[in-house]
């Protein structure tokens, strides 16, 4: 008899598609958070698969810190154009200009934390009742306990001690007026799964993920891009380095790794042999042992 088995990638894909269709069914006004990073690109790809041959029935939203890599923005615009989706840009710069948040000062200044305010405001203004994100449970320990359907109160806050039990594949998206959900279709994927899937599906990515030469400097052991938006100390000298990025976020908190991996195959090889976590290059997680937990409680996605 034939074996009716799915490979692990197909099973993860099927689970994610199920979750995305559940969002479209259970919510009136969902949005897919799109950062231009590989996880959100995979989510958008899965959303296309979930509703094919129709278009993705919800818009994509980018929370733009104003400190994005130009390559990310360029990729984002081409991608949106290609899939024919609607793009909403929520700007941290606007929040700063309107005095809703204050920019951090000093060498470690980052707009990463400010994103939360802009995100929550955009959710409120657009009356989104579900925001789909590409977070994975393997990324960080506070995320290991996250649900697929994560309930947020009217302040957008996460209460880890009071999460709804989530059983089988039955998702409870019921909510009161003003509350909303964060939904994570690729919760069960690891970094390796994401790369293997990108290779398998031949998904296009921003060039930042592949090895290239760039002006960099080193801070606290992390390779940072020597851009004007990061204030450098006198001791931090610029070097030309052969690098790539493992994650793509705001320029001020995204570290690079030295790498010659210029193809998906080589990246997978590198990921397989690498000995540090992906978020090990993210300075936003290093602020304290419970950094992610604290940010999530405040509404960070």
């Amino acid at each position: 008899m034939k074996a009716y088995n799915l490979t692990h990638l197909k099973e993860l894909e099927s689970e994610a598609i199920f979750v995305l269709r559940e969002v479209a069914s259970q919510f009136d006004n969902p949005v897919l958070l799109f950062s231009g990073g590989k996880d959100s690109i995979v989510c958008a790809h899965l959303a296309r698969k979930a509703f094919f041959p129709a278009k993705v029935p919800f818009p994509l939203m980018h929370v733009d810190t104003g400190h994005n890599f130009p390559e990310t923005i360029e990729f984002r615009d081409q991608f949106i154009d290609k899939i024919g989706a609607q793009l909403i840009v929520a700007s941290v710069q606007d929040s700063i200009d309107q005095g809703k948040v204050r920019e951090e000062k000093g060498f470690n200044a980052s707009r990463n934390a400010l994103q939360t305010v802009t995100l929550l405001e955009a959710i409120e203004n657009n009356k989104f009742d579900a925001a789909i994100g590409g977070a994975r449970r393997d990324e960080e320990k506070a995320r290991a306990k996250e649900r697929f359907f994560s309930h947020r109160d009217e302040f957008g806050q996460w209460d880890p001690k009071n999460q709804r039990p989530e059983l089988w594949n039955i998702f409870n998206g019921m909510k009161h007026f003003g509350e909303n959900f964060r939904v994570f279709p690729i919760s069960n994927w690891t970094e390796m799964d994401v790369w293997q899937y990108i290779l398998h599906e031949r998904i296009e990515l921003p060039s930042l993920y592949f090895s290239h030469e760039r002006n960099c400097f080193i801070r606290d052991g992390v390779i940072m891009y020597a851009t004007d938006v990061i204030e450098r100390k006198d001791s931090e000298t610029i070097e030309r380095m052969q690098i790539r990025f493992r994650t793509i976020g705001d320029m001020t908190c995204t570290g690079a790794v030295e790498s010659n991996a210029d193809s998906l195959e080589k990246i997978i090889e590198e990921v397989a042999s690498t000995r540090t976590t992906e978020r090990g290059t993210r300075s936003d997680d290093k602020r304290s042992e419970a950094a992610m937990e604290d940010r999530k409680k405040q509404g960070y996605f």
Binding site: A144, K145, P160, K161
Partner: peptide
Amino acid sequence: TIDVAYRY
């Protein structure tokens, strides 16, 4: 441990 944690 308070809650179910998923590991991979």
